[in-house]
Structures are given as structure tokens and as C-alpha cells.
Design a protein around this nucleic acid. Sequence first.
RNA 1: CGGGGUGUAGCUCAGUUUGGUAGAGCGCCUGGUUUGGGACCAGGAAGUCGUCGGUUCGAAUCCGGCCACCCCGACCA
Length: 481
Amino acid sequence: MVIKPTGYALWEKMQRALDGLFKATGHVNAYFPLFIPKRYLEKEAEHVEGFAKECAVVTHHRLVAKPDGNGLMPDPKAALGDEEMLVIRPTSETIIWRTYKEWIQSYRDLPLLINQWANVVRWEMRTRLFLRTAEFLWQEGHTAHASQKEAEEETHQMVEVYRRFAEEWMAMPVLVGPKTDGQKFPGAIYTLCIEAMMQDGKALQAGTSHFLGQNFAKAFDVTFQNVQNQQEHAWATSWGVSTRLIGGLIMTHSDDNGLVIPPRLAPLHVVICPLGRNDAERGPSIAAAEKLAEELRALPRDEFFGYEPISVKIDKTFDKQPGYRYAEYELRGVPVRVEIGPKDIEKAACAVARRDVPGKDGKQFGIPLAGAAAHISDLLRAIQLALFERAKAYRDAATVTANTLDEFKAFFPLEKDDETGTQPLKFVYAHWDGTAETEEMVQQQYKATIRCLPFHGPTEPGTCIFTGKPSARRVVFARAY
RNA sequence: CGGGGUGUAGCUCAGUUUGGUAGAGCGCCUGGUUUGGGACCAGGAAGUCGUCGGUUCGAAUCCGGCCACCCCGACCA
């Protein structure tokens, strides 16, 4: 996976915001090895089964020239034995819990609240840009606790951190709740997730927080002495979000004119385009642009922008047409564009365009330069809110209830209907009997999966629309990425 | 791994049916004119036609092997 500078700048903004939220909840960062001994992975039964089929395996530690002199081959003498063989981490529970064994002796060593920013590799059969790449960047939190209660509180706290990040920073509304047993993390007791809807109506799992019980502590023999002088296995959680979020952000907000980046995560908040046909006209435009840029950068910093200054660029590519310059920054998703030309200078004003309303419609002329900085700062906050409200309205409008199997089928057509085109997909609330068999059948037949059992959703009991058996509550079905 | 498809200039592709010595648009470079929503004119650079072999006087084009990539399916943060 190659992430070019603009995309990476977006990831850095995400990292900074998330890292702040992790630190604010008492977590610290550390780093663990990329290579995991294969035998570690074998220790937790469900975990092995979940990840074994997508591991890159290191079998040799040296290359030598081929006998015919053309190219290189692994040196047979440098083969790693079964006990030495390594895998490239698909996730780090095993190596981290092997390490925690050394770190944890007493209840006084707990809780251990550690996060790691890293890359992982999962050998997927088919990749999809940003959403499913063989290598991806992520953070993985791994915590150890002295009690089940505390570990479960941590699991809930972290999914709430993810919800806040998704909604308040990415402006991406999410459903929050547990996965079904069939969809939970391999090795977890349960998995909580945030689940977002993309503009095609498909669901994107955007973050997960797992309660791991004592599974890994038992697998790696991690015990501590409690206040009563007894040995006890530690309780675990793990939680993560990845560069998949970049894909989620793009697919939540962007339009036909290009990227739309919510202001709180935009690497560049404001671009100012001075205009003019010759040096005599450009001079005053540039001077006004520089003054406005300074005023924007000098605005008081606050929590909204992570206590960082508003980021401003002055675009002086006069050899390009103005229309070209506007389109270029729209394509790149810069939230606010300011135009200052001779006509504005006459009136001591400028034109301000908001990216969430594409094209000329989002442009307002005659904003006085005197109060422009404050106006733009307010506008950035308004855009952040508008993006969230728009995405939420979109999702809610595309959320439906199915009370019969026929209704359900209609929401998940199996073949593209050439008459009507592909109809947008939906989040479908329906009753389900709670069994893995039914869930499996629905996935096979309708290519829809249960995304989660949302905490804030209908909870009345009913009858499973697939089997007629009793259902404890409605769950959310959707096609997923 | 099964089914389908595609490899020709930096990008998107035409040319392959019917063999005759390499094309377009966009992008790039130079000069000029333009400049408030993706400008115009002139000139220019740029391709072992995926690869190896075969047929032929002659192959991007016909035949065979190989490789790579894309789409659909099984798998999945």
C-alpha cells in the first residue's frame, strides 16, 4: 500500500486526534515486534483459526544466488525450523500477552493501558483500496485488568471513544453495539463495533473494541497476585481502528467534484486564491491574501482544531485559469476557499466558498475583509456540523424496517435489475432468532450480514422473519464492504 | 483456486477481424496571447506494441508457451 503525501497528512491528523483521546483516557504508547513466532499464534484456539489462513510466513533468513546465476533464492541452509518460524503480525495479541507475562505479577501492576501504532499484514484474497489492503496502518490498544468489570468498562469506554472520533471528528454517524457471535473477533468473548453507512448504502465496520475475558491470559499464563494473596488470570481488552477510516471518510462525504474533508481533519483548512491579470492587479490581491492568512493563523486556538492553528495556503499559480484553480482545490477537498481579486479589493471584501456546497452555489461574494477571519473560522465549524447532519440524514433515510421475508428480500435484490438500475442499499432492522445457522443462511442467500445489535435501537421482542422462531430484538442487516 | 476479460506514449484508449513498418485525446516541454468556474494558438519531446518462441519477404496484427493486471465467486478490519 502506498499512501501519498496528501492522504498521509489526513492519516496524521486522524492519528493526532485519536492519540489525544487515548491519552486523555489514561493510555500510553509502546511498540512490539513485527515478527511473531508462529508458536505464539498457536496458543489461543479461536485466534489461530481466525487468522491462520491470512498470515505471511517467514521461513528463511537469507538469500543466495541461484545455481544458474540468474537471481536469488532462499538459502536452504538458512531455513527456519518449525519452532523458529515467524509470521508477520496480523494483529498483536499473542506477542503482547507473551510480553505481559513478564510485566504482570501483582494487582499493583494493573491496569496496563497500552496502545501501539503499527502496520499489520493480512493476506487477503482480494484487496480493495483503503478498505482491505494486504498491509495496513492502524492502532491497537491492549489492556490488562484485575477484574472482569473493569475490563468490560474499558471495552465500552473505547468503543465510545471511537464513536466520538467518528462522529465528532470524521462527521461520520455510526451505529454502536455488539457484533453477533458469528462476527466477533477470533478469541474474544464479545466484540463491540462502530458501523457506518457509505453513500451506496453499504455498511463499513469502522472500529472494534473486544472484551477478551481471560482467554489470552490463560493461553500465555499471565497471572497476578490479588489483595487476598491469590493467583488470578488477568482480564483483557483489545481495540483498533485502521487506515480503513480514510476510505470511510472519503465514501461518507465526497461528491462528483471530488473529496470533501471535514474541517477538523483537513490537513489544509483554507486556500486563498489571489486573482489578477497583471502584476499591478496581483500585488494588492496578494497583500490582502497574506494579511488574511496571518489573521487566520493568529486566531485563538481551541479544542475544535485540536489546539492547532488554522492551516492556510496562498495559491499563487497565476499561470493557471481561476476556474482551474477552484476546481483543483475542490477536488482535493479543502473545506474553505477564499478568492481575492481586483473587484474585491475595491470594496475591501473577498469571496468565500464552502466545499460542502460544491461549485458556484457554495460561494458568497462581498465578505468584508475586516471580519473575514472570524467569519471563516465560524464557517469551518458550521461545515463540520453540516457534514455530520447531512450524512446522518442520509443514513436515517436509508434505514428501514422489514417485518416479513418478502420485504427483506426486496431490500437486498440478488441480481441487478436492468430496468431500474442498482437500487441504493439500506440498513434493515429485522427480527432474527439469534442463531448462527440463520445468520449464515441469510449471508449465503442475500449477501447481507448482521452488522450489529445497536445499543440505541428498537429492543421489542418479536418473531424471526426467516424461521418464525422467537426473536429477542431487531438487529441491523446490511451489505458490507 | 474456478469463470470472464485486458496488456500499444505518463494516463485513457483506437489500430488486430482483412499482416505492409505507430495513432488520437488528455498530460508534459518551449514561445506567445489569455485569466472572477477546469483557456487558445504555434512548435516539440515521448512507445523494445507485456514477454519468449513460431509462421511469413514482412507481425501490434496470425499461431503457441509464459507473465502481469482487472472483474465476478469462495475469504475478510
